[in-house]
Amino acid sequence: MNRKRKKIEPRYIILIVTVIIIVLIAVLSYALKTDKKLNTFESIVKDVVVEVQKIVYFPFKNFSTMLSNYNSLKDVLEENRILKSNVEKIESLEAENVALKKELEEMKNELNIEHVLTDYDYLNATVVSRNAATWYNNLTIDKGSHNGIEEGMVVINSTGVIGKTTNVSTFSSDVKLITTTDTNNKISVTITNGDKKLIGLINGYDYKTKYLEIEGISNTDNVAIGDLVYTSGLGGVFPSGILIGKVADITTDVYDLSKIINVTPSANFEDINYVTVLKRTDNK
């Protein structure tokens, strides 16, 4: 292969490298800001690529679904028997539900909690891709502002809270997972220990142990391994009552004043294919 080889002057190389380093620092610090919103160009590009990505992904997803459906067929008979027995209980559950809703409304007013799960509409979405930069803890879903999604909406799956929406474009959105090291992503939580409820704050996620770390619990408070951790509803972003996980390990801080509680998340972050976005009903 014949190639012309032009010599680049060393001073230009030094200049280019310096400029690139400065630009990279500026760009990355800008990009890591959580409140960065997509501009029109970014939004259009992202939508187009996500739509094509959905078409490309379609046969692979169908094949994978077919395989899992086939695997679950053997359990159908047993599941059907359980479902039949559950159907008989529905009427009594509905009556109980009405009474509980009324009770919940009264308690919300009394405790001054802004949002609970019943204040939300559920919107199901499919994960289209995960972030190429694995340290970023983002994934992309196939629903956007066209479907009523806004920045900062809570995203859950069947096992618990996953994260919140960011970078919303017309037909797609990103989900910033709760495992991110982003300090702006702290979530207020409640630890239920018998009748007592303790309020703490998720401080981060340890990838080695796969624990969420909770701080802000006094050393005098009783917390036991196996206690359940839910969102508290304080802070106004995450509604109360969504399961986060179970207490797995308890230590104290360096001053022996407060507890550091490690929680095993209920959600499996390695296998997220379908998610549910909680849309506030007053956003409709």
């Binding site: 680049i8 490298v17 990279l24 760009v27 990355l28 590009v45 992202k46 996500v50 970023y136 992309t140």
Partner: peptide
């Protein structure tokens, strides 16, 4: 680079800049 940045990495033009730097290395 910009396409990759917008769609999969959300890092504005970080990948583009790194690709440019790597272009000169490969050159």
């Amino acid at each position: 680079g910009i396409l990759l940045d917008i769609t999969y990495s959300n890092t504005f033009i970080l990948c583009t800049c790194i690709f440019l730097a790597i272009f000169y290395l490969n050159k």
